[in-house]
Amino acid sequence: ESFERTINIAKGNSSLGMTVSANKDGLGMIVRSIIHGGAISRDGRIAIGDCILSINEESTISVTNAQARAMLRRHSLIGPDIKITYVP
């Protein structure tokens, strides 16, 4: 059984350190890789294959690959914290 989780990740000045791609069925974006030493890796809660539904409350539903990457990059630049809703 999968259910949504919303977490805050304190990334400070470091990068999030993950790559994503659009989910084929349009439901959010899938975590493709996690870079060791990045904020996601240090936090430890998000794993490869998890589905991200929103970043800082901006929905990732029906985004393209390019939009998913641009959204991740944009939110990575805002502030020291990032809020991610995902399904493990």
Rank of each mutant, 00 (worst) to 15 (best):
I52S: 01
D25N: 15
K83E: 07
S41H: 15
G26W: 04
T60F: 14
I84D: 03
K83S: 09
G12E: 09
D81M: 12
H75Q: 11
Q67V: 07
I84P: 03
I84W: 03
T6G: 03
R42Q: 14
V87I: 14
E57S: 12
I82L: 12
N13T: 13
I61Y: 09
N8M: 14
G28C: 03
I48S: 07
A10E: 13
M71Q: 04
L77N: 15
E1C: 05
H36W: 09
S59I: 05
V87F: 06
N56I: 04
D81V: 08
G26H: 07
G79Y: 10
K11Y: 07
Q67M: 07
S14P: 05
L27M: 15
S14W: 10
A22P: 14
S59D: 07
P80F: 06
I61V: 14
T64S: 12
L16F: 05
I61C: 13
V31S: 00
L27S: 15
R45C: 02
S15D: 15
S33G: 10
V87P: 00
S41P: 02
A39E: 04
V20E: 01
I48K: 11
G49A: 02
H75K: 07
I34V: 09
V20R: 00
I9V: 11
S62L: 08
G17V: 00
K83I: 05
K24N: 11
L77T: 13
I35S: 13
Q67I: 05
M18V: 09
I30N: 06
G37T: 06
D50K: 00
D43V: 03
G26P: 03
N13P: 09
G26R: 06
I48A: 09
H75N: 09
S21A: 13
K83V: 07
I48R: 08
I48D: 05
K24G: 11
C51W: 05
A47H: 15
R73Y: 14
K83N: 10
K83W: 07
D25V: 08
G38F: 04
G17Y: 00
V63A: 10
D81Q: 11
G26K: 06
T19H: 13
R5I: 10
G37H: 06
R74M: 06
M18E: 01
T6H: 06
G37Q: 07
I52R: 00
R45D: 03
I9H: 02
S76W: 15
N56S: 03
S15F: 14
V63Y: 08
E4N: 13
G17I: 00
E4L: 10
S54G: 12
G37W: 02
R45I: 00
N23A: 14
A10F: 11
V63K: 13
R42H: 07
A22I: 09
D50S: 01
I7N: 01
G49L: 00
A47Y: 04
I55E: 00
S21D: 12
D43F: 01
I82K: 01
I40E: 00
I34H: 02
I9G: 00
G49E: 01
G79P: 05
R73G: 08
L77R: 13
I82T: 12
A66K: 13
D25G: 11
A66G: 12
E1K: 10
Q67Y: 08
T64Y: 04
A66S: 13
S41T: 03
G12T: 08
S15C: 13
A22D: 07
I84Y: 01
P80W: 07
Y86W: 04
H36S: 15
T64I: 01
L16Y: 03
G17W: 03
S41F: 12
E1R: 07
G28S: 03
I30T: 12
S54N: 09
G28V: 00
Y86I: 02
I78G: 15
G28R: 02
R69D: 14
E57V: 01
R42V: 11
L27Y: 14
R32C: 12
V20G: 04
S21N: 08
A10W: 12
I34G: 01
E1W: 07
R32E: 15
E1A: 06
L27A: 15
I78E: 14
S33L: 00
A10Q: 14
A66F: 09
N8V: 14
S76R: 07
L77P: 07
H36R: 14
I84R: 02
S76H: 08
R69M: 13
N23L: 03
I52K: 01
D25I: 07
I40L: 04
P88Y: 06
D50Y: 01
I7S: 00
H36N: 14
L77C: 14
I61P: 04
R5A: 07
R74P: 05
G79L: 05
I82R: 01
G28W: 01
T60A: 12
I84N: 00
R69K: 14
G79W: 05
A22R: 14
D50V: 02
I48V: 15
R42W: 02
P88H: 09
I40M: 05
A70C: 09
T64D: 11
C51Y: 07
R32P: 01
M29S: 01
S54R: 14
G17S: 00
A39H: 05
I84K: 03
L16P: 02
E1T: 08
S62A: 14
S33I: 03
R42P: 00
L53P: 02
I40R: 00
M71T: 09
K24D: 12
I46Y: 04
A68G: 07
H36C: 10
R32H: 08
R5K: 14
G12I: 07
R45H: 05
I48Y: 02
I9Q: 01
R74F: 07
E4S: 15
N23F: 04
R42S: 08
V31A: 02
A70T: 09
M29P: 03
I55Q: 00
I34R: 01
L77V: 12
S54T: 07
R74H: 09
I30V: 13
E4T: 13
I82M: 11
I46M: 08
D50H: 00
G12Y: 08
S41C: 12
T64R: 03
A68E: 02
I40Q: 01
L53D: 02
A70L: 10
G12D: 07
P88V: 02
K83G: 04
G28D: 00
V31I: 04
A66D: 15
Y86Q: 01
V20D: 00
L72T: 04
K11N: 12
S15Q: 14
K83D: 05
L72C: 06
L16S: 01
T60D: 03
S62V: 08
S14E: 13
N65Y: 06
M18T: 03
E58R: 05
I82F: 08
T60K: 04
A39I: 06
N8G: 05
D81F: 10
I84M: 06
T6Q: 07
I34T: 02
N23C: 12
R45M: 00
A10N: 15
V87D: 04
F3E: 09
R74I: 06
M18N: 03
S76L: 04
G17M: 02
I40G: 00
A70P: 04
G37F: 05
R5Y: 09
N8I: 15
T85W: 02
G37N: 08
N23H: 14
G44N: 07
P88R: 10
F3R: 10
N65D: 15
P88E: 07
M71C: 10
E57I: 02
G49R: 02
T60C: 15
I30C: 09
L72I: 11
G38L: 06
N56M: 03
N23G: 12
E57F: 05
K24Q: 12
K11V: 15
G38A: 06
R45E: 00
E1S: 09
I78C: 15
I78V: 12
S76M: 08
S15V: 11
S2I: 14
D25Q: 13
T19G: 09
